[in-house]
Design a protein around this nucleic acid. Structure first.
Lengths: 148, 148
DNA sequence: ACAAGTATGCACCTTTTGGTAAGTACCCAA
DNA sequence: TTGGGTACTTACCAAAAGGTGCATACTTGT
């Protein structure tokens, strides 16, 4: 027991309290962040939300062309999940060459707003991140994402 | 050709301009959101960032116990990536029973702050999300995440 | 002496995710 | 008639992501 754990080198213990503690629980998740992550997990979901938030009701084909490099299968699939999670609303106009569009529900809109800081952060630190990524690997860890 | 595209059913065209448009480009990514997502992608990364942001320098074992259900392999791996991306700093005290701790770099701290709205959103809408998830599937799509 | 804790590394394997390509049913323009 | 566009669906696959379990080297507690 000789040693106290007081360290010779350790930093001045920042103790940042600016980031609030998550509120624990509810049936499924353990904290807010956890809940959010489950809903936005999916390669294109944040982008989709962002797109629709910007453009308002968006037709499938339009979305398809905007979210570059996404395949039909996956786009549809993610849209379905977003719909099932109550974030987007699908409107089928029952027209003869099919016409469908997607818009955000109030819930989806609020999530899109919560994504803004992430977008801002990325924009502000893109140079740094870019540099780090560049020296690390052979780029494009896998055909890289869209254009928003 | 008969039809103008004015729709019979469409909603009042919300046109939400509150969500700003992403600033296009830089070598690798296409927008800020894209850049951010690449860095925080990983099942436990946001949680790790959040944890360390709250607790300050955190020892490996401590983190391991906090981020429940994560395996050593993956935790280490994600920590390495976060370190390589300049978000966390690893400090090895070179002591004899190994002692190491992880803390956030300024960059990491700023990201953690950008995550706050997501945490808040999740907390506020946990009930809704929870309900939807509940009726959808056999719960725990895969042993569910941690406690933060 | 032996179990446990410390911070990893490594081999192997399963799950998840995403992608490709083709098909559907219907319309319009060339 | 052929070709293109609309909004999907399905079957089949490849790759990424994550998990399990064992090993290391050394110390402390029992």
């Amino acid at each position: 027991m000789s040693s106290d754990r007081s360290d010779p080198i350790s930093p001045p213990a920042p103790v940042q309290a600016d980031v609030q503690r998550c509120t624990p629980n509810l049936p499924g998740f353990t904290c807010g962040l956890d809940a959010t992550l489950r809903v936005v997990a999916g390669k294109w979901k944040p982008l989709i939300l962002y797109f629709v938030a910007q453009d308002g009701p968006t037709r499938y084909g339009e979305l398809r062309r905007s979210v570059r490099d996404v395949s039909d299968k996956v786009l549809i699939q993610q849209l379905k999940e977003l719909e099932a999670d109550g974030l987007v609303k699908r409107t089928d106009y029952k027209e003869v060459p099919p016409r469908v569009d997607y818009s955000l529900t109030p819930l989806g809109r609020s999530l899109a707003e919560a994504l803004v800081p992430l977008c801002t952060w990325g924009t502000e630190h893109m140079a740094e991140v870019s540099r780090v990524f560049a020296e690390r690997e052979g780029w494009t860890r896998r055909g890289h994402p869209p254009t928003v």
